[in-house]
Each structure stands twice: as C-alpha cells, then as structure tokens.
C-alpha cells in the first residue's frame, strides 16, 4: 500500500502539490489523469523519491521512503520517467540487465539472466536484444525501459506516461502487458496517462488531479462522467458507453 500524507511541493512561487493525501491499495492499475501542470508527474516523482517534497510524507507498505535504504526500496518499487535520455551507449539487453542491479550489484546470477530474458519476452524485445538503443525507434526504446523496470522484479511499478511515443498498436500492447503483469505477477501499477480512454478501459482506479490537488478518485465508471471530466479539464466532454466501457469524446 502506498500512502502519502499532506504532500506539498512548490517550484519557486508556484505550488505544484497542495496537501496531497492519498492511499493506493496493493494490486491493480491506478491511472492519474489531469490537465497539463496539474501536478501528476510531480506526484509520481515524489512518491518514487526522485523529488523531495517540501513537507509531508510518503510510505510504502508502512515504510517511509526517504528513510528506507536505497537498494532495499529499489527492490520494492520501480519508477520510469517520461524522458529518458542516456549518455551511455547500451544495447537493449544491457539496459534491461541494469534492472538487476538492486539485486546483484552488477554480477548477474542465473536468476538475474532469467528475469532479464523474461522481461524482454514480455515486451517482445527478444529479437532486438543485441541492438543499441540509438538504433531503435522511440517506441522500441520506451519498451526497453519498461522491460528494465519489469526486470527489477518490484511489487510496485510507477510509470510516467508509458504510452508516450507509442502508436496505437504498441500502446495497446503496452497496456495489455501491464494488465497481464498485474494479474499474473500481482504487481501494483501506478501511471500518469494523458489518454483518458486508455485510462477508462484499462484502469482499476482513476485519480483526477487539478492545480496540485486530488479532486476525484474512484473506478472508471465513477470518474469518466461528463460532470467530473468538466470539473477536471474545464471543458464539455461527452461520454458514451460502448461494450461496457466508457469513452470520452473530445475531438469535435
């Protein structure tokens, strides 16, 4: 379980997180939605200790994340940010193998190799395993980074816009992969999503943020409604139910 208590964070004079208190239960996919600048990525970064909050606390399975030892936390929680520029020149396999560092400190055990191969299979990267990252398309690179976080074998996986750079086919494949990981491996996935329809179809819970606050949270059926979406995005959005899923229409 991930818990945040009264998180505040500001950049200069602008408040990005305003007293965010949140409880995310174990298991399932939670999507964080909201307009640009609502504080979604900041919240994700603070939960995963990439950013420090000005005040407030985050705990994972009732352990404070800023007191936890680095490697121990890295075996429990993996995080992937949006923009992953590397100075190093690596092959896909080398990158995914880095996911084992918290377990093996650079000396890969047979169990590590198995986890690396497994993660590459999950994300359909086996054929690309010997390619260098700078020889890949944006989508393939994104999948390689997600494979690294899977190889870390953590209970919690936090992803900041994992569908960035992905076309329809790959975006859907990514979401299905994550759902499979949640079901088969009992992972807890928390991610920031811009496409509210992907959030609607694939999430177990949706958290809606606006101006640094969590203003709504609940199941897709509860959140994907015209009234709530108007509140979150300040625009009129029609919602239709097709095959038991709710879709928002905001293209016209």
């Amino acid at each position: 379980m991930i818990e945040t208590r009264a998180l505040r964070k500001s950049y200069g004079s602008s408040l990005v997180l305003d007293e965010v208190s949140l409880t995310l239960p174990r298991g399932g996919i939670t999507s964080i939605i909201g307009a640009n600048g609502a504080g979604k990525s900041t919240l994700l970064s603070v939960i995963s200790r990439l950013l420090t909050a000005d005040s407030g606390a985050v705990s994972i399975d009732s352990q404070d994340i800023f007191r936890a030892a680095g490697p121990e936390l890295a075996r429990k929680l993996a995080v992937l940010r949006q923009d992953n520029h590397l100075n190093a020149r690596l092959t896909v396999k080398e990158l995914v193998s880095f996911g084992r560092y918290p377990h093996s400190k650079g000396r890969l055990t047979p169990a590590c190799r198995e986890a690396v191969n497994h993660a590459m299979t999950w994300l359909d990267l086996t054929a690309l395993s010997d390619r260098f990252l700078d020889q890949l398309s944006g989508g393939q690179r994104q999948r390689a980074f997600v494979a690294m976080t899977l190889a870390q074998e953590t209970d919690y996986i936090l992803l900041d816009e994992p569908l960035n750079n992905l076309d329809m086919k790959n975006a859907r494949a990514m979401m299905l992969t994550l759902r499979q990981a949640v079901q088969a491996l009992q992972k807890t996935v928390v991610m920031v999503l811009h496409d509210i329809n992907f959030a609607s179809v694939h999430s177990d819970r949706i958290i809606a943020m606006k101006a640094g606050r969590v203003i709504h949270s609940g199941t897709p059926a509860q959140i994907i409604t015209p009234a709530i979406l108007r509140d979150v995005y300040d625009m009129e959005i029609t919602v239709q139910e097709i095959d038991g899923h709710r879709f928002a229409f905001y293209y016209g």
Partner: peptide, 11 residues
C-alpha cells in the same frame, strides 16, 4: 552514469 532518475530508481 545512467543519470539521476534511473540511478535513484536502481537504488
């Protein structure tokens, strides 16, 4: 050398 976000993630 992978940079701060990835390195922190890896412990």
């Amino acid at each position: 050398g992978l940079g701060r976000p990835v390195a922190v993630n890896l412990g």
